[in-house]
């Protein structure tokens, strides 16, 4: 390759990166430039903002707990067993990753809404999900769990099989090996998956609005509160967005650090 074409190529990739960076960072920067720290603190003092933040923290925490408790063994099953249709099953579980949020909301209503397939059964059990905080949790688990399952499956698959074999040879049961060897070894990966799921759950909007509705303190999470404020007070919407961006950025940073403390510099190299 001639020096000129090499120069041309590196110029092209540099420009492409600059364009991508500007496009991705500018809107996020605008949230913080358009709102001052004073406005941000003021808006957090409002009752609607506090209710929304508390509700978002509560629902995402419950959703994450459910995702981890059910998702960890499920991901272990997919990572440790070889069977026909495993690839198909993995793909099915990942489907909500690419599902449009509005479609997720409709799907949840069609399955678990009062007129849905299991509506009568849920009603007989005395369970109502739409318009309840529990409905928000269901929507969050639905959209966020694939992020955890995917990462957890990969982390379990990446554990050195000789360690597992050694544990089994020494007479440990599968359950014991899972709890004492596999989970601790895969922990950084599991934590990354948990953080990704948490980030997705915090930002959930469409499925929550359609399936759970919007009511202050009950189902109005931060993203819904941002949309509600957009119509009445753009600055207040900006301030609440800034909080959500800050939390999401912290989660992202945490995942990078969990990946290994030096992964930030490694990525830079």
């Amino acid at each position: 390759m001639s020096a000129l074409s090499r120069l041309w190529f590196s110029l092209a990739v540099t420009i492409a990166l600059a364009v991508a960076l500007t496009f991705l960072i500018l809107p996020i920067l605008a949230i913080f430039l358009d709102t001052g720290p004073a406005a941000l603190i003021d808006s957090l003092g409002e009752e609607t903002a506090r209710d929304a933040l508390l509700l978002s923290l509560e629902t995402t925490a419950i959703a994450l707990a459910i995702i981890i408790v059910v998702g960890t063994p499920a991901a272990y099953f997919l990572a440790s067993r070889r069977f026909r249709g495993r690839a198909l099953l993995t793909t099915l579980i990942e489907l909500p990753l690419v599902l449009p949020p509005a479609a997720a909301g409709i799907a949840l209503l069609a399955a678990l809404g009062p007129n849905g397939i299991f509506g009568a059964e849920l009603d007989a059990l005395g369970i109502t999900l739409p318009l309840e905080t529990a409905g928000v949790v269901v929507a969050l688990v639905f959209v966020a769990s694939p992020f955890y399952l995917r990462q957890a499956q990969a982390s379990f698959a990446a554990v050195d099989p000789t360690i597992v074999d050694a544990s089994r040879t020494l007479g440990a049961s599968e359950a014991h090996t899972f709890a004492r060897i596999l989970v601790p070894t895969a922990l950084p990966g599991l934590a990354t998956g948990g953080a990704l799921a948490l980030g997705r759950a915090l930002g959930e909007f469409g499925a929550t609005l359609m399936f759970a509705g919007a009511l202050q303190g009950v189902t109005q999470t931060v993203p819904l509160a941002i949309f509600d404020r957009f119509a009445r007070d753009f600055d207040a919407a900006l301030a609440l967005s800034a909080v959500l961006v800050a939390i999401s950025a912290a989660i992202l940073l945490a995942t990078k650090l969990l990946d290994g403390p030096d992964s930030l510099t490694r990525a830079a190299r």
Binding site: G113, P130, L131, L209, M210, A214, L215, T219, D228
Partner: peptide, 19 residues
Amino acid sequence: VRSEEPDVSGIIGKLTQGA
């Protein structure tokens, strides 16, 4: 009041779905 919807479509949707 169990839901404050952004527009009529949201209210109609909640009604027709029995929510």
